[in-house]
Design a protein around this nucleic acid. Structure first.
Lengths: 204, 204
DNA sequence: GTCTATAGACGGATAGAC
DNA sequence: GTCTATCCGTCTATAGAC
């Protein structure tokens, strides 16, 4: 192997080791020194691979999304009925959110980004694909709702309970089972199918 | 009026002028110099009123929540039917979220806070009250759902579409009307009452 | 490719004059 | 109460040796 391969490998290692840092602390509260230390390198070495902090951050987020969002499409067969596919997707998303706090927090940081340009890039190149998957699932449902609003609702219903995991423990009515992805997925699916109240006492 | 009143007034002015700063940029990316400049003071003057940056931030968030969360209880009469009260609350929350980006972003910063102690304080003393209001509304609904999960769902459904306002514009299917609080509130209420699909073609 | 060393700006916080 | 002046640490980024 030539040097080119080694260079690429180091670059990827920097990305992978930076992901949890930026996920936990966000852009401003992670210094290039922190990144370098996590990689066992010096700051100067990081600058050899990435022109500046902004480019590093953008690539970190994009890298994490490429890695993780594939898991959401597992088990989604075109042969399944629309509601079955949606249920599988919701369950997959809940499991990803429950397991992967890193992925979840990166989405939050993107939503909060105070630099407009950077946020636009991330929205258009990174988040859009995830949203598109949901949008396609929803349009197959023969729904009364606006597909766009419904897509947004589905993502919100699944992700936000896990985003606020720490906070949620302090809210009245909390029980540990609320942290289980299958419990939340079931709740969301029921809500989407029937609403919050029981209309058919005989059915289901 | 004595000096004590003047001191309290300055202190409150600092709080009010700091709110939009911390809301937009978060804890780490707002310096005491920024706060001082926004108030027309020097950093040393800020330290006369607040012992350190952390205390200032905590009081800023608490102050904003005291100011704004009262608006959510407008029009909520005990004489109304449970579903009417919920609809009013959802509408109020949607309007607050649509109008008041400052309030909305502060909630996001609290959820993302990487300092556990600070986050716990804010969750227990600031967010809890808001959640309690929803929880009480929900328990009056005679619902099939877990009240805790349903409360979380309601808050998510209303707030998150406005939190991601900038991002949402880049997602497929977006139309400007999706930004109107009444449109979203209607969508959420319909979802809660009936689910995403139409079960009663003859009714409603 | 990675290092040491450093420039230059900015951060939180304090001392002491007024 | 608010100021000026300052301490001291950390930040991004670069220059140049190896």
């Amino acid at each position: 192997m030539g040097q080119g391969t080694g260079k690429r490998r180091t670059r990827e290692e920097i990305l992978e080791l930076s992901v949890p840092l930026f996920a936990e602390f966000g852009y401003y509260d992670v210094s290039m020194r922190d990144v370098a230390a996590a990689c066992g390198l010096t700051p100067a070495a990081i600058y050899y691979h990435f022109s500046d902090k902004d480019h590093l951050y953008l690539e970190v987020v994009a890298h994490e999304f490429r890695e993780k969002s594939a898991a959401l499409l597992i088990d989604l067969n075109d042969s399944d009925a629309p509601w079955v596919r949606l249920e599988k997707f919701v369950t997959n998303l809940a499991h990803l959110a429950a397991k992967d706090e890193v992925f979840l927090r990166l989405i939050q940081w993107v939503r909060l980004d105070s630099e407009e340009k950077r946020q636009q890039k991330l929205a258009a190149h990174v988040l859009k694909d995830l949203f598109l998957v949901v949008h396609r699932l929803v349009t197959g449902l023969d729904c009364r709702c606006d597909p766009y609003l419904l897509s947004m609702s589905i993502v919100s219903l699944v992700l936000i309970p896990f985003e606020g995991r720490q906070i949620r423990k302090f809210m009245p009515g909390y029980r540990p089972e609320h942290d289980q992805p299958d419990v939340l997925a079931r709740h969301v699916i029921n809500l989407l199918r029937l609403g919050a109240c029981q209309h058919h006492p005989a059915g289901e």
